[in-house]
Amino acid sequence: MKLVLVACGTALATSTVVARKIETIAKEHGIECRTIQAKAADAFKKSQELHPDAIVCTCQLDGESDIPIINGRAFLTGINIQSTIDQLVEILKK
């Protein structure tokens, strides 16, 4: 089971929509995946505890992480969404 941490400023609105999109995309690609949401400020702390396979954020994240970070804004705007999907799927298929 893969785990994706989804971060946005308040872990309230955009991350909820993005998390559902990620689950749908994973399913379509035959990947078992669950998501967990975090506020931007807690994202790295949570990722240290939970070791997700990827962090998808709709906000800027300050700091460094060994975990791949994907800018999830395309899931909201639809602009260049395919390259974001490809990036996500590639990481989750590893």
Binding site: L12, T14, C57, C59, G72
Partner: peptide, 29 residues
């Protein structure tokens, strides 16, 4: 969003007063 240095010209605002995003997922989507 996600890039504070970027300037975006905005013409439509959706101001969200949301408590329970899971319940409101439909309208957010």
């Amino acid at each position: 969003m996600g890039n504070p240095k970027e300037k975006v010209l905005v013409e439509i605002l959706f101001l969200l007063a949301i408590k329970n995003p899971a319940k409101q997922l439909g309208v957010l989507q």
